[in-house]
């Protein structure tokens, strides 16, 4: 095995068994304009500008510490939890400034769901996990909640596996199931955008491929923004790819183009495995 085959799918990725993208809606969902994020004095994301299209899967790739997570967590303002973290420039969600003064963070997070690197279901029952968000947003009554839970679990391709163990503790599920449960939990509040921060890095290959399939199925209904370490995965699941390097956005474009014909030398070096 050469290093090449280890790191990249093929020079000309056509992504064999992927469903064709649904008729691409050209609406821009998230727009970054000269957007920066600082940790104290450290500028972790530097004046990035690009547009993430609605209803598509956008992958963010780049070496460790290049600001992928930081950027992702800016979109639903999870960075607010970190003391000393602040943003500059503009980050627009449907033309509304995410960091604007009148934004309701709770409402924002309802529109922008998130799936984390390590599966993090609550130590509650499967049902209560999925129902957690809807309950916050005012869904009451067992039957209505059940409805939402079932729908979400189906969308997350988990229903058949857990329909008999809804009252059981979610921590009893396997890692892959837990991650799909987290996706179901995020979906349950009916978000428009799903942020995924290396959602498969803690999973085995089989569970990974199930999640990847699931992301394919979510495409069209949700704008998915997924950080990944794994370039093959980016190539397999995404329609667009953004390449970050040391806080800068080096390259952004349709995935096929980025992987087959990168404009930037550094992108090529990275995806061919010369560094990173």
């Amino acid at each position: 095995m050469t290093e090449n085959t280890l790191h990249i799918p093929a020079r000309k990725t056509t992504l064999p068994d992927r469903k064709p993208a649904p008729a691409a809606p050209s609406r821009v969902h998230v727009r970054a304009e000269e957007f920066s994020v600082f940790y104290g004095q450290n500028e972790a994301v530097r004046k990035v500008s690009f547009e993430i299209p609605a209803g598509q899967v956008t992958a963010i790739i780049g070496p460790s510490g290049c600001g992928k997570s930081t950027f992702l967590r800016a979109i639903n303002r999870m960075n607010d939890l970190i003391p000393g973290c602040r943003a500059a420039g503009k980050l627009l969600l449907d033309e509304n400034d995410v960091f604007g003064p009148r934004i309701d963070v709770t409402a924002l997070r309802r529109r922008v769901g998130m799936v984390f690197q390590k599966p993090n279901p609550f130590p509650k029952s499967v049902f209560d996990n999925v129902a957690y968000g809807p309950r916050i947003h005012g869904v009451r009554g067992r039957t209505r909640l059940m409805d939402v839970v079932q729908r979400s679990l189906r969308k997350a391709a988990l229903w058949d596996e857990v329909k008999d163990r809804l009252p059981q503790n979610a921590l009893g599920l396997s890692g892959g199931q837990q991650q799909r449960l987290c996706i179901a939990r995020a979906i349950a509040v009916d978000p428009e955008i799903l942020l995924m921060d290396e959602p498969t890095s803690a999973l085995d290959p089989q569970a990974t491929s199930r999640i990847e399939d699931l992301i394919g199925e979510l495409r069209g209904n949700y704008t998915v923004i997924a950080v990944t370490h794994n370039m093959q995965q980016a190539a397999r699941i995404s329609d667009f790819t953004a390449f970050f390097y040391e806080g800068d956005l080096i390259d952004f474009g349709p995935t096929t183009q980025l992987f087959t014909n990168p404009r930037e030398k550094r992108t090529e070096d990275y995806i061919t495995g010369r560094f990173g």
């Binding site: 999870m78 769901g113 984390f116 609550f122 916050i136």
Partner: peptide, 27 residues
């Protein structure tokens, strides 16, 4: 209590005190 619990709750639109009440304290 793992920080990820709080993050998960907040990412679903919970307010801080609600996250404390429903996730952090029970854990």
């Amino acid at each position: 209590v793992p920080a990820t619990y709080k993050e998960a709750a907040l990412s679903l639109g919970a307010s801080k005190w609600w996250a404390v009440l429903t996730v952090i304290l029970p854990a």
